Amino acid sequence: MKSLLVLLLTVFPLLSLASSRGEDQFIEKVYSVIEAKNGTFREVAPADLNPKQLAGLMKAAREEADIWYDTILEGDYMLNSEADIEVVELSQYYSASGELVAYRAVIQHAAFDVGEDNCTPGYISSGIFISPDFRFHFRDEDAIEDFTEL
């Protein structure tokens, strides 16, 4: 029993370390292409993804939208509870050598501006990068969450 405990305490931290290392490598690769300013985008439709990829895309979209609760939703905006997160743009992002380094998506959710006793309909949107295997994602700092009126 003690051996099993030692094995578990050894294996799980190593898996976590490997996962964070993979995520760090993904982020570094995307930023190196961005900084080199030699990446290219190719638009794709979410419908072109297989079911596993689409599930990964939507999982990343929901997790990235959760950030909004600590940012834009602390202000004068409220999500429309009758709507759900949507992917409104999807592109594949390639390095100069033609390697697929990420997917870039624009996600949005119907929302309201409730400031100053108004209830203006619109949507909150932001950009995100997702790894080609859909395991990792991070927000696009050049397209942070914003509200747009309808």
Score class of each variant (00 low, 15 high):
V11D: 08
Y93W: 03
M1Q: 13
L73M: 04
A45I: 04
E99P: 01
S125F: 11
I34Y: 06
R135N: 13
N38H: 06
G75K: 12
E145K: 10
E43D: 10
N50M: 13
D76H: 03
Q92I: 02
T120D: 06
F147Y: 10
Y94N: 00
D84R: 15
G122V: 14
I34N: 01
Q92N: 05
L9S: 13
I34L: 07
E64F: 01
K52H: 05
D84K: 14
I130G: 00
D117N: 15
S126I: 05
A96S: 13
D84H: 15
D140M: 09
V106E: 10
I27C: 02
D76G: 11
E23K: 06
E43G: 07
A65V: 01
M1K: 12
L5Y: 15
F147M: 07
F129M: 01
E35H: 07
S32Y: 11
R42A: 08
E23T: 06
S16V: 14
Y94S: 02
L5G: 08
F136H: 05
E63L: 10
N80E: 09
D48A: 11
I144K: 01
S32I: 01
V88E: 14
A47H: 12
A47Q: 13
D113I: 08
K29Y: 09
A36E: 06
R139I: 01
A111L: 03
H109V: 01
D70I: 03
L7E: 15
R139S: 02
A60R: 04
A55R: 13
P13E: 15
I27P: 01
L15H: 10
L79D: 09
D133A: 12
S16L: 13
A143S: 14
I128H: 03
A36N: 02
N50Y: 09
Q92A: 07
A143V: 11
P46G: 06
Q25L: 10
K37T: 10
A105C: 04
D24Y: 10
L100N: 08
L5T: 14
E63F: 03
D70A: 10
L8P: 01
A83H: 08
F136A: 04
G98F: 05
A105K: 05
I72T: 00
V101C: 07
P46V: 01
S91F: 11
F41W: 04
P121S: 12
E89T: 09
H109F: 00
D133Y: 13
M58K: 07
Y77E: 05
A47L: 07
